[in-house]
């Protein structure tokens, strides 16, 4: 079946932003299941700005289809530089609309990417003994 991907999706697929592993990450979020065909890892480095904790650096690795790769790339782009609180508010519709839409059958991919981000933030919180939400 052919998929109609937006130009934005294809740009991120061809040239993913923030791709790769982060060895000294402060938080790591791993979601998905190879059985289902999508696995996403998001790595974050947390810094401080105006007394608030922000995502200073972020990287991702994804096993999955075109949209899975594009949504993780876009999610990292949206989260970079934001406070942790703001980042937790990034939801699937934000990611999908930043990509000019996704085919309906692929919407679950964008869900997964925001879950991965949330998992990475929660992992950081746990490590620093703070409570996640």
């Amino acid at each position: 079946m052919s998929m109609n991907y937006s130009k934005k999706v294809m740009e991120h697929f061809k040239n993913p932003k923030n791709m790769g592993e982060m060895k000294d990450a402060d938080g790591v979020g791993k979601v998905g299941n190879p059985v289902c065909g999508d696995v996403m890892h998001i790595y974050i480095k947390v810094g401080k700005k105006d007394g608030k904790e922000i995502i200073e650096d972020i990287k991702f690795q994804t096993f999955g289809c075109v949209s899975a790769i594009a949504v993780t790339s876009m999610t990292t782009l949206l989260a970079k530089g934001k406070t942790l609180e703001e980042s937790l508010k990034i939801k699937r519709d934000d990611v999908a609309s930043a990509l000019d839409g996704l085919p309906p059958i692929k919407m679950h991919c964008s869900n997964l990417a925001s879950e991965a981000l949330e998992a990475a933030i929660n992992d950081y919180m746990k490590k620093t003994k703070k409570k996640g939400n």
Partner: peptide, 21 residues
Amino acid sequence: ACSSKSLEPSHVLTAIGLKPE
């Protein structure tokens, strides 16, 4: 699977014993 409407891997590949991944 990701290329199909059902998001399930091909029945042929499943039948020859490939794991979904």
